[in-house]
Amino acid sequence: MIFEWIRFFIVAALLIAALISFASAVFGAYRFGFVMNRMHSAGIGDTLGIFFIVTALCIASGFNMDTLKLLLLIFFMWFTSPVSTHFLGQVEYYTNPDLSKHVQRIGGMLGDEKTEAELKKKPDKEAEDGAD
């Protein structure tokens, strides 16, 4: 009987940890002001939150067919979450006109005429140096 209660408290701790990580993800979604910061907080819920939930349910149910399905779920979520985040970042990068207010790119932003002119100038200069 005592082991049942120990299992119950482990499950309760894991579920509350999952709830806290999801709450921190939602808090970050409200707190941050830019999408690429919000993606960071969304990743907490997508990876850590679902890990705690699935671990808690696996411990609660014991080893049966549901455990394998839940492990498949966590496997799927851990592989698809970075892909969707990457696509969202790509959409933000190519469609936001005010991107340079929020992020910096090494070598200059795309579509910025001044930096593009500098980038065009730089290889020619190097080629001239090589010729000399």
Binding site: A29, R38, G45, D46, G49, I50, L88, E92, T95
Partner: peptide
């Protein structure tokens, strides 16, 4: 993108 990201997090929950 904010909306799509929110829908993604909502789906996870």
């Amino acid at each position: 993108t904010d909306r799509i990201l929110s829908i993604n997090m909502l789906g996870t929950m």
